[in-house]
Design a protein around this nucleic acid. Structure first.
Lengths: 235, 235
DNA sequence: TCCCCATTGTAGCCGGTGCTACAGAGTCGC
DNA sequence: GCGACTCTGTAGCACCGGCTACAATGGGGA
Protein backbone atom coordinates (compact mmCIF):
# COMPACT_ATOMS: atom_id res chain seq x y z
CA UNK A 1 0.00 0.00 0.00
CA UNK A 2 1.41 3.34 -1.00
CA UNK A 3 1.71 5.54 2.03
CA UNK A 4 0.75 9.14 1.60
CA UNK A 5 3.24 10.05 4.29
CA UNK A 6 5.97 9.67 1.72
CA UNK A 7 4.94 12.88 0.04
CA UNK A 8 5.54 14.78 3.21
CA UNK A 9 9.06 13.76 4.03
CA UNK A 10 11.67 16.08 2.56
CA UNK A 11 14.08 14.52 0.11
CA UNK A 12 17.12 14.91 2.29
CA UNK A 13 15.41 13.89 5.48
CA UNK A 14 16.89 11.21 7.70
CA UNK A 15 13.33 10.26 8.63
CA UNK A 16 12.33 6.84 7.43
CA UNK A 17 9.25 6.81 5.29
CA UNK A 18 7.78 3.73 6.94
CA UNK A 19 4.04 4.20 7.11
CA UNK A 20 2.20 4.84 10.31
CA UNK A 21 0.32 1.68 9.64
CA UNK A 22 3.53 -0.25 10.14
CA UNK A 23 3.81 0.86 13.73
CA UNK A 24 3.16 -2.01 16.05
CA UNK A 25 0.25 -0.31 17.73
CA UNK A 26 -1.63 -0.42 14.46
CA UNK A 27 -1.19 -4.14 13.96
CA UNK A 28 -4.51 -5.71 13.28
CA UNK A 29 -6.29 -2.53 12.41
CA UNK A 30 -8.63 -3.18 9.54
CA UNK A 31 -7.45 -1.82 6.18
CA UNK A 32 -10.63 0.07 5.42
CA UNK A 33 -10.65 1.63 8.84
CA UNK A 34 -7.09 2.56 8.40
CA UNK A 35 -7.84 4.27 5.12
CA UNK A 36 -10.46 6.32 6.87
CA UNK A 37 -8.13 6.97 9.75
CA UNK A 38 -5.48 8.16 7.37
CA UNK A 39 -7.92 10.54 5.85
CA UNK A 40 -8.55 12.30 9.14
CA UNK A 41 -5.05 12.20 10.54
CA UNK A 42 -2.90 15.25 9.96
CA UNK A 43 0.61 14.25 9.06
CA UNK A 44 3.43 16.58 9.96
CA UNK A 45 7.17 16.74 10.16
CA UNK A 46 8.75 18.64 13.03
CA UNK A 47 12.32 19.78 12.86
CA UNK A 48 14.73 19.64 15.76
CA UNK A 49 13.67 22.10 18.44
CA UNK A 50 10.13 22.65 17.20
CA UNK A 51 7.20 22.03 19.52
CA UNK A 52 4.19 19.81 18.89
CA UNK A 53 2.31 21.78 21.51
CA UNK A 54 3.22 24.00 24.40
CA UNK A 55 2.38 23.97 28.07
CA UNK A 56 -0.70 26.05 28.69
CA UNK A 57 -2.02 25.80 25.16
CA UNK A 58 -5.50 24.35 24.57
CA UNK A 59 -5.55 20.57 24.35
CA UNK A 60 -6.14 19.57 20.78
CA UNK A 61 -4.55 16.73 18.94
CA UNK A 62 -3.25 13.38 19.98
CA UNK A 63 -0.08 12.52 18.11
CA UNK A 64 1.21 9.17 17.04
CA UNK A 65 4.96 9.24 16.57
CA UNK A 66 5.99 7.72 13.32
CA UNK A 67 9.67 8.46 13.39
CA UNK A 68 11.96 10.59 15.49
CA UNK A 69 12.06 11.37 19.17
CA UNK A 70 10.04 13.63 21.45
CA UNK A 71 10.94 15.17 24.78
CA UNK A 72 8.16 16.07 27.20
CA UNK A 73 9.05 18.81 29.60
CA UNK A 74 7.43 21.15 31.99
CA UNK A 75 8.34 24.47 33.53
CA UNK A 76 7.32 24.66 37.16
CA UNK A 77 6.01 27.71 38.95
CA UNK A 78 9.38 28.50 40.43
CA UNK A 79 10.93 28.45 36.98
CA UNK A 80 12.67 25.09 37.25
CA UNK A 81 12.46 23.05 34.12
CA UNK A 82 11.97 19.32 34.32
CA UNK A 83 12.04 16.61 31.69
CA UNK A 84 9.18 14.21 32.21
CA UNK A 85 9.66 11.67 29.49
CA UNK A 86 11.08 10.76 26.13
CA UNK A 87 8.82 9.19 23.52
CA UNK A 88 9.75 7.11 20.53
CA UNK A 89 8.10 5.83 17.36
CA UNK A 90 4.94 3.91 18.18
CA UNK A 91 4.26 5.94 21.32
CA UNK A 92 1.51 8.47 21.74
CA UNK A 93 2.05 12.09 22.64
CA UNK A 94 -0.69 14.25 24.03
CA UNK A 95 -2.69 11.39 25.51
CA UNK A 96 -3.84 13.77 28.26
CA UNK A 97 -6.60 14.54 25.78
CA UNK A 98 -8.15 11.20 26.66
CA UNK A 99 -8.80 12.14 30.23
CA UNK A 100 -9.66 15.77 30.32
CA UNK A 101 -10.31 18.91 28.38
CA UNK A 102 -8.37 22.07 29.15
CA UNK A 103 -4.76 22.94 28.56
CA UNK A 104 -1.68 20.89 27.97
CA UNK A 105 0.19 20.60 31.25
CA UNK A 106 3.50 20.20 29.45
CA UNK A 107 5.42 20.96 26.29
CA UNK A 108 6.38 18.41 23.64
CA UNK A 109 9.66 19.09 21.84
CA UNK A 110 11.04 17.37 18.77
CA UNK A 111 14.55 16.25 19.66
CA UNK A 112 15.34 15.44 16.07
CA UNK A 113 13.47 15.42 12.80
CA UNK A 114 10.22 13.80 13.80
CA UNK A 115 7.23 12.63 11.84
CA UNK A 116 3.83 12.42 13.45
CA UNK A 117 0.21 11.93 12.62
CA UNK A 118 -2.14 14.06 14.68
CA UNK A 119 -5.76 13.24 15.40
CA UNK A 120 -8.66 14.87 17.10
CA UNK A 121 -9.71 12.99 20.23
CA UNK A 122 -13.14 12.32 18.81
CA UNK A 123 -11.65 10.73 15.70
CA UNK A 124 -9.24 8.68 17.72
CA UNK A 125 -12.04 7.50 19.97
CA UNK A 126 -14.01 6.42 16.97
CA UNK A 127 -11.13 4.45 15.57
CA UNK A 128 -10.71 2.66 18.86
CA UNK A 129 -14.41 1.89 19.04
CA UNK A 130 -14.22 0.39 15.57
CA UNK A 131 -10.96 -1.41 16.34
CA UNK A 132 -10.91 -2.67 19.91
CA UNK A 133 -7.60 -4.26 19.08
CA UNK A 134 -6.08 -0.84 18.80
CA UNK A 135 -7.49 0.04 22.21
CA UNK A 136 -5.79 -2.99 23.67
CA UNK A 137 -2.49 -2.01 22.11
CA UNK A 138 -2.75 1.46 23.54
CA UNK A 139 -3.54 0.08 26.95
CA UNK A 140 -0.42 -2.04 26.75
CA UNK A 141 1.63 0.93 25.65
CA UNK A 142 0.29 3.16 28.40
CA UNK A 143 0.86 0.49 30.98
CA UNK A 144 4.49 0.53 29.93
CA UNK A 145 4.58 4.28 30.31
CA UNK A 146 3.27 3.89 33.83
CA UNK A 147 5.95 1.35 34.64
CA UNK A 148 8.61 3.62 33.28
CA UNK A 149 7.30 6.54 35.32
CA UNK A 150 7.32 4.32 38.38
CA UNK A 151 10.99 3.67 37.77
CA UNK A 152 11.61 7.37 37.47
CA UNK A 153 9.95 7.91 40.82
CA UNK A 154 11.92 5.14 42.46
CA UNK A 155 15.04 6.58 41.10
CA UNK A 156 14.27 10.06 42.34
CA UNK A 157 13.56 8.77 45.79
CA UNK A 158 16.65 6.85 46.61
CA UNK A 159 20.35 7.14 46.96
CA UNK A 160 22.95 9.71 46.17
CA UNK A 161 23.24 11.71 43.00
CA UNK A 162 25.87 9.50 41.42
CA UNK A 163 23.64 6.44 41.64
CA UNK A 164 20.63 8.38 40.46
CA UNK A 165 22.43 9.60 37.37
CA UNK A 166 23.65 6.11 36.63
CA UNK A 167 20.23 4.59 37.01
CA UNK A 168 18.55 7.16 34.83
CA UNK A 169 21.10 6.59 32.11
CA UNK A 170 20.44 2.87 32.41
CA UNK A 171 16.71 3.40 32.14
CA UNK A 172 17.06 5.61 29.09
CA UNK A 173 19.45 3.17 27.48
CA UNK A 174 17.01 0.34 27.96
CA UNK A 175 14.27 2.25 26.18
CA UNK A 176 16.21 4.37 23.74
CA UNK A 177 19.49 2.51 23.44
CA UNK A 178 21.23 0.30 20.95
CA UNK A 179 23.55 -2.56 21.69
CA UNK A 180 27.06 -1.87 20.45
CA UNK A 181 30.38 -3.61 20.84
CA UNK A 182 31.16 -1.47 23.88
CA UNK A 183 27.81 -1.79 25.60
CA UNK A 184 24.43 -0.12 25.48
CA UNK A 185 24.56 3.21 23.73
CA UNK A 186 21.94 5.92 24.04
CA UNK A 187 20.83 6.95 20.59
CA UNK A 188 20.70 10.66 21.17
CA UNK A 189 23.05 13.13 22.84
CA UNK A 190 22.36 14.31 26.37
CA UNK A 191 23.96 17.38 27.83
CA UNK A 192 24.71 17.73 31.52
CA UNK A 193 22.02 20.34 31.63
CA UNK A 194 19.40 17.99 30.20
CA UNK A 195 20.44 15.36 32.70
CA UNK A 196 19.94 17.90 35.43
CA UNK A 197 16.35 18.37 34.25
CA UNK A 198 15.92 14.62 34.33
CA UNK A 199 17.18 13.91 37.81
CA UNK A 200 16.21 17.24 39.31
CA UNK A 201 19.71 18.26 40.29
CA UNK A 202 22.10 21.10 39.73
CA UNK A 203 24.05 21.02 36.49
CA UNK A 204 27.39 21.36 38.26
CA UNK A 205 26.53 18.44 40.49
CA UNK A 206 25.80 16.35 37.40
CA UNK A 207 29.25 17.15 36.07
CA UNK A 208 30.75 16.04 39.39
CA UNK A 209 28.73 12.82 39.41
CA UNK A 210 29.60 12.01 35.81
CA UNK A 211 33.25 12.58 36.49
CA UNK A 212 33.15 9.86 39.11
CA UNK A 213 31.05 7.55 36.93
CA UNK A 214 33.54 7.89 34.11
CA UNK A 215 36.59 7.44 36.30
CA UNK A 216 35.15 4.18 37.61
CA UNK A 217 34.31 3.09 34.07
CA UNK A 218 30.60 2.72 34.73
CA UNK A 219 29.82 5.20 31.98
CA UNK A 220 31.66 6.02 28.78
CA UNK A 221 31.08 8.96 26.47
CA UNK A 222 31.91 8.53 22.85
CA UNK A 223 30.84 10.43 19.79
CA UNK A 224 28.82 12.60 22.15
CA UNK A 225 26.66 9.64 23.24
CA UNK A 226 26.64 7.91 26.57
CA UNK A 227 27.52 4.22 26.59
CA UNK A 228 26.94 1.84 29.46
CA UNK A 229 29.55 -0.87 29.16
CA UNK A 230 29.26 -4.48 30.19
CA UNK A 231 26.85 -7.23 29.32
CA UNK A 232 24.21 -5.13 30.80
CA UNK A 233 20.63 -6.34 30.53
CA UNK A 234 17.57 -4.13 30.48
CA UNK A 235 15.94 -3.81 33.92
CA UNK B 1 -29.87 -6.55 38.94
CA UNK B 2 -28.88 -8.48 42.00
CA UNK B 3 -25.14 -8.31 42.46
CA UNK B 4 -23.45 -11.48 43.52
CA UNK B 5 -20.83 -9.40 45.26
CA UNK B 6 -23.28 -8.88 48.07
CA UNK B 7 -22.82 -12.41 49.28
CA UNK B 8 -19.16 -11.83 49.80
CA UNK B 9 -19.21 -8.78 51.99
CA UNK B 10 -19.26 -9.57 55.70
CA UNK B 11 -22.27 -8.35 57.60
CA UNK B 12 -20.37 -5.85 59.71
CA UNK B 13 -18.23 -4.58 56.90
CA UNK B 14 -17.99 -0.86 56.17
CA UNK B 15 -17.59 -1.79 52.49
CA UNK B 16 -20.44 -0.63 50.35
CA UNK B 17 -22.10 -3.37 48.41
CA UNK B 18 -22.42 -1.34 45.23
CA UNK B 19 -21.84 -3.64 42.33
CA UNK B 20 -18.73 -3.53 40.20
CA UNK B 21 -20.99 -2.82 37.30
CA UNK B 22 -21.80 0.51 38.90
CA UNK B 23 -18.22 1.67 38.64
CA UNK B 24 -17.88 4.37 36.06
CA UNK B 25 -15.39 2.41 34.00
CA UNK B 26 -18.09 -0.15 33.30
CA UNK B 27 -20.60 2.36 32.00
CA UNK B 28 -21.89 1.23 28.67
CA UNK B 29 -20.75 -2.34 28.98
CA UNK B 30 -23.36 -4.60 27.52
CA UNK B 31 -25.44 -6.48 30.11
CA UNK B 32 -24.89 -9.89 28.60
CA UNK B 33 -21.18 -9.29 28.38
CA UNK B 34 -21.17 -8.15 31.93
CA UNK B 35 -22.89 -11.31 33.04
CA UNK B 36 -20.18 -13.29 31.37
CA UNK B 37 -17.55 -11.07 32.83
CA UNK B 38 -18.96 -11.53 36.27
CA UNK B 39 -18.77 -15.23 35.83
CA UNK B 40 -15.04 -15.13 35.26
CA UNK B 41 -14.10 -12.42 37.72
CA UNK B 42 -12.95 -13.52 41.13
CA UNK B 43 -14.41 -11.32 43.82
CA UNK B 44 -12.48 -10.87 47.02
CA UNK B 45 -12.38 -8.78 50.14
CA UNK B 46 -9.02 -7.77 51.55
CA UNK B 47 -8.66 -6.61 55.12
CA UNK B 48 -6.43 -3.78 56.21
CA UNK B 49 -2.80 -4.72 55.76
CA UNK B 50 -3.38 -7.66 53.45
CA UNK B 51 -1.68 -7.77 50.06
CA UNK B 52 -3.32 -8.28 46.68
CA UNK B 53 0.02 -9.37 45.33
CA UNK B 54 3.63 -8.95 46.33
CA UNK B 55 6.67 -7.62 44.57
CA UNK B 56 8.49 -10.45 42.84
CA UNK B 57 5.48 -12.76 42.65
CA UNK B 58 4.35 -14.00 39.24
CA UNK B 59 2.03 -11.62 37.43
CA UNK B 60 -1.45 -13.02 37.48
CA UNK B 61 -4.62 -11.10 37.95
CA UNK B 62 -5.70 -7.61 37.10
CA UNK B 63 -7.87 -6.17 39.84
CA UNK B 64 -10.70 -3.70 39.59
CA UNK B 65 -11.22 -1.87 42.86
CA UNK B 66 -14.80 -1.85 43.90
CA UNK B 67 -14.48 -0.26 47.31
CA UNK B 68 -11.65 0.63 49.62
CA UNK B 69 -8.16 1.94 49.02
CA UNK B 70 -4.91 0.40 47.80
CA UNK B 71 -1.34 1.48 48.34
CA UNK B 72 1.28 0.50 45.77
CA UNK B 73 4.76 0.32 47.16
CA UNK B 74 8.12 -1.00 46.26
CA UNK B 75 11.21 -1.97 48.15
CA UNK B 76 14.36 -0.92 46.37
CA UNK B 77 17.62 -2.83 46.23
CA UNK B 78 19.14 -0.77 48.99
CA UNK B 79 16.20 -1.53 51.24
CA UNK B 80 14.47 1.83 50.98
CA UNK B 81 10.74 1.56 50.71
CA UNK B 82 8.84 3.90 48.45
CA UNK B 83 5.13 4.48 47.95
CA UNK B 84 4.33 4.74 44.28
CA UNK B 85 0.62 5.41 44.24
CA UNK B 86 -2.72 5.17 45.94
CA UNK B 87 -5.65 3.68 44.06
CA UNK B 88 -9.35 4.16 44.67
CA UNK B 89 -12.61 2.56 43.58
CA UNK B 90 -12.86 2.48 39.81
CA UNK B 91 -9.12 2.26 39.34
CA UNK B 92 -7.22 -0.78 38.16
CA UNK B 93 -4.48 -2.49 40.11
CA UNK B 94 -1.99 -4.79 38.47
CA UNK B 95 -2.29 -3.27 35.02
CA UNK B 96 1.36 -4.17 34.44
CA UNK B 97 -0.13 -7.45 33.24
CA UNK B 98 -1.22 -5.64 30.09
CA UNK B 99 2.30 -4.89 28.98
CA UNK B 100 4.45 -7.80 30.00
CA UNK B 101 4.64 -11.20 31.54
CA UNK B 102 6.96 -11.85 34.45
CA UNK B 103 6.81 -10.71 38.02
CA UNK B 104 5.03 -7.89 39.76
CA UNK B 105 7.50 -5.05 40.21
CA UNK B 106 5.65 -3.81 43.28
CA UNK B 107 3.39 -4.76 46.13
CA UNK B 108 -0.28 -3.80 46.46
CA UNK B 109 -1.53 -3.28 50.03
CA UNK B 110 -5.08 -2.86 51.20
CA UNK B 111 -5.13 0.30 53.33
CA UNK B 112 -8.59 -0.47 54.63
CA UNK B 113 -11.22 -3.08 53.98
CA UNK B 114 -11.17 -3.33 50.21
CA UNK B 115 -13.31 -5.17 47.73
CA UNK B 116 -11.96 -6.16 44.36
CA UNK B 117 -12.77 -8.25 41.37
CA UNK B 118 -9.75 -10.00 39.85
CA UNK B 119 -9.48 -11.14 36.26
CA UNK B 120 -7.02 -13.03 34.17
CA UNK B 121 -5.44 -10.84 31.50
CA UNK B 122 -6.82 -13.01 28.73
CA UNK B 123 -10.36 -12.61 30.08
CA UNK B 124 -9.95 -8.90 30.49
CA UNK B 125 -8.61 -8.61 26.97
CA UNK B 126 -11.61 -10.46 25.65
CA UNK B 127 -14.00 -8.18 27.47
CA UNK B 128 -12.29 -5.16 25.99
CA UNK B 129 -12.42 -6.64 22.51
CA UNK B 130 -16.15 -7.21 22.94
CA UNK B 131 -16.66 -3.79 24.54
CA UNK B 132 -14.42 -1.19 22.96
CA UNK B 133 -16.14 1.34 25.17
CA UNK B 134 -14.51 -0.24 28.17
CA UNK B 135 -11.15 0.03 26.45
CA UNK B 136 -11.72 3.72 25.98
CA UNK B 137 -12.59 4.16 29.64
CA UNK B 138 -9.46 2.37 30.69
CA UNK B 139 -7.39 4.52 28.39
CA UNK B 140 -8.88 7.59 30.01
CA UNK B 141 -8.20 6.22 33.45
CA UNK B 142 -4.62 5.31 32.62
CA UNK B 143 -4.03 8.68 31.07
CA UNK B 144 -5.02 10.17 34.40
CA UNK B 145 -2.60 7.89 36.20
CA UNK B 146 0.14 9.13 33.90
CA UNK B 147 -0.76 12.73 34.66
CA UNK B 148 -0.70 12.04 38.35
CA UNK B 149 2.67 10.34 38.10
CA UNK B 150 3.95 13.33 36.16
CA UNK B 151 2.93 15.53 39.06
CA UNK B 152 4.73 13.25 41.46
CA UNK B 153 7.87 13.59 39.37
CA UNK B 154 7.57 17.34 39.19
CA UNK B 155 7.14 17.45 42.86
CA UNK B 156 10.16 15.30 43.56
CA UNK B 157 12.33 17.43 41.35
CA UNK B 158 11.77 20.86 42.74
CA UNK B 159 12.07 22.92 45.82
CA UNK B 160 12.75 22.27 49.46
CA UNK B 161 11.26 19.55 51.56
CA UNK B 162 8.60 21.74 53.15
CA UNK B 163 7.15 22.63 49.75
CA UNK B 164 7.38 19.08 48.55
CA UNK B 165 5.47 17.77 51.52
CA UNK B 166 2.84 20.43 51.06
CA UNK B 167 2.43 19.71 47.39
CA UNK B 168 2.15 16.00 47.86
CA UNK B 169 -0.52 16.50 50.49
CA UNK B 170 -2.35 18.76 48.06
CA UNK B 171 -2.12 16.18 45.31
CA UNK B 172 -3.40 13.41 47.56
CA UNK B 173 -6.20 15.60 48.82
CA UNK B 174 -7.31 16.37 45.29
CA UNK B 175 -7.59 12.69 44.46
CA UNK B 176 -8.48 11.18 47.79
CA UNK B 177 -9.90 14.10 49.71
CA UNK B 178 -13.25 15.37 50.79
CA UNK B 179 -14.36 18.95 51.14
CA UNK B 180 -15.13 19.85 54.75
CA UNK B 181 -15.91 23.06 56.53
CA UNK B 182 -12.22 23.56 57.33
CA UNK B 183 -10.86 22.72 53.91
CA UNK B 184 -9.90 19.65 51.95
CA UNK B 185 -9.46 16.64 54.16
CA UNK B 186 -7.56 13.50 53.20
CA UNK B 187 -9.81 10.51 53.79
CA UNK B 188 -7.21 8.23 55.30
CA UNK B 189 -4.54 8.70 57.95
CA UNK B 190 -0.94 9.24 56.91
CA UNK B 191 1.95 8.78 59.31
CA UNK B 192 5.14 10.75 58.99
CA UNK B 193 6.82 7.55 58.01
CA UNK B 194 4.42 6.96 55.12
CA UNK B 195 4.96 10.52 53.99
CA UNK B 196 8.66 9.87 54.01
CA UNK B 197 8.07 6.96 51.61
CA UNK B 198 6.05 9.28 49.42
CA UNK B 199 8.48 12.15 49.10
CA UNK B 200 11.63 10.10 49.48
CA UNK B 201 12.90 11.84 52.57
CA UNK B 202 13.93 11.00 56.11
CA UNK B 203 11.12 10.57 58.61
CA UNK B 204 12.62 13.10 61.01
CA UNK B 205 12.88 15.66 58.25
CA UNK B 206 9.20 15.15 57.53
CA UNK B 207 8.39 15.91 61.15
CA UNK B 208 10.43 19.10 60.91
CA UNK B 209 8.74 20.15 57.68
CA UNK B 210 5.28 19.45 59.04
CA UNK B 211 6.02 21.46 62.14
CA UNK B 212 6.64 24.48 59.98
CA UNK B 213 3.63 23.80 57.77
CA UNK B 214 1.39 23.61 60.82
CA UNK B 215 2.83 26.67 62.47
CA UNK B 216 2.13 28.68 59.34
CA UNK B 217 -1.37 27.22 59.14
CA UNK B 218 -0.90 25.70 55.72
CA UNK B 219 -1.73 22.28 57.08
CA UNK B 220 -3.99 21.19 59.92
CA UNK B 221 -4.21 17.79 61.54
CA UNK B 222 -7.46 16.77 63.07
CA UNK B 223 -8.87 13.41 64.00
CA UNK B 224 -5.63 11.99 62.67
CA UNK B 225 -6.32 13.27 59.15
CA UNK B 226 -4.55 16.04 57.34
CA UNK B 227 -6.63 19.01 56.27
CA UNK B 228 -5.58 21.66 53.80
CA UNK B 229 -7.47 24.82 54.74
CA UNK B 230 -8.66 27.55 52.47
CA UNK B 231 -10.86 27.60 49.42
CA UNK B 232 -8.33 25.44 47.83
CA UNK B 233 -9.03 24.11 44.37
CA UNK B 234 -7.65 20.91 42.92
CA UNK B 235 -4.40 21.28 40.92
C1' DT C 1 40.60 31.20 10.12
C1' DC C 2 38.62 33.39 13.79
C1' DC C 3 34.97 34.39 16.77
C1' DC C 4 31.04 33.24 19.31
C1' DC C 5 28.37 30.55 21.96
C1' DA C 6 27.20 26.23 24.08
C1' DT C 7 29.02 22.89 26.88
C1' DT C 8 32.08 20.96 30.22
C1' DG C 9 35.20 21.27 34.13
C1' DT C 10 37.02 23.07 38.81
C1' DA C 11 36.92 25.46 43.26
C1' DG C 12 34.93 27.10 47.61
C1' DC C 13 31.23 28.26 50.63
C1' DC C 14 27.18 27.10 53.16
C1' DG C 15 22.49 25.62 53.88
C1' DG C 16 19.27 21.89 53.92
C1' DT C 17 18.68 17.11 55.00
C1' DG C 18 20.29 12.75 56.40
C1' DC C 19 21.38 10.27 60.34
C1' DT C 20 21.63 8.83 65.24
C1' DA C 21 19.89 9.12 69.68
C1' DC C 22 16.52 9.75 72.86
C1' DA C 23 12.41 11.66 75.08
C1' DG C 24 7.36 12.54 75.20
C1' DA C 25 2.53 11.23 73.60
C1' DG C 26 -0.89 8.38 72.20
C1' DT C 27 -3.12 3.72 71.71
C1' DC C 28 -4.21 -0.93 72.52
C1' DG C 29 -4.67 -5.14 75.16
C1' DC C 30 -4.68 -7.25 79.57
C1' DG D 1 -3.87 1.16 85.61
C1' DC D 2 0.22 -1.01 83.54
C1' DG D 3 3.25 -2.44 80.06
C1' DA D 4 4.32 -2.63 75.22
C1' DC D 5 4.28 -0.67 71.08
C1' DT D 6 3.85 2.84 67.57
C1' DC D 7 4.02 7.44 66.40
C1' DT D 8 5.62 12.19 67.03
C1' DG D 9 8.86 15.62 68.52
C1' DT D 10 13.65 17.66 69.56
C1' DA D 11 18.69 18.06 69.38
C1' DG D 12 23.27 18.02 67.29
C1' DC D 13 26.58 16.70 64.01
C1' DA D 14 28.12 15.50 59.30
C1' DC D 15 27.97 15.84 54.64
C1' DC D 16 25.91 15.94 50.16
C1' DG D 17 24.62 18.81 46.84
C1' DG D 18 22.96 23.74 45.68
C1' DC D 19 24.90 27.86 44.28
C1' DT D 20 28.16 31.33 42.39
C1' DA D 21 32.08 32.35 39.79
C1' DC D 22 35.19 31.58 36.37
C1' DA D 23 38.24 28.95 33.26
C1' DA D 24 38.87 25.56 29.51
C1' DT D 25 37.18 23.19 25.58
C1' DG D 26 34.95 22.50 21.28
C1' DG D 27 31.92 22.97 17.35
C1' DG D 28 29.64 25.78 13.86
C1' DG D 29 29.00 29.87 11.15
C1' DA D 30 30.57 34.20 8.94
Amino acid sequence: MKCSCDDLVPRDSPVSSACVKDLTIFDGVDDDDFERFRGIGVRRVFRHGETLFVQGGPIGEIFVIKAGRIRLSKVLEDGTEITLDFRKPGDLVGEEAFSRPGNYPLTAWAMEETMTCGFRVSDFNRLILDNPDLGLKLIGNMSQRILSLNSRLENAASGNLEDRVFRILSAIASEHGRKTSKGYSITFPLTHEELSYLVGAHRVSITRALKRLRSTGKVIKEDNRFILPGDWTAE
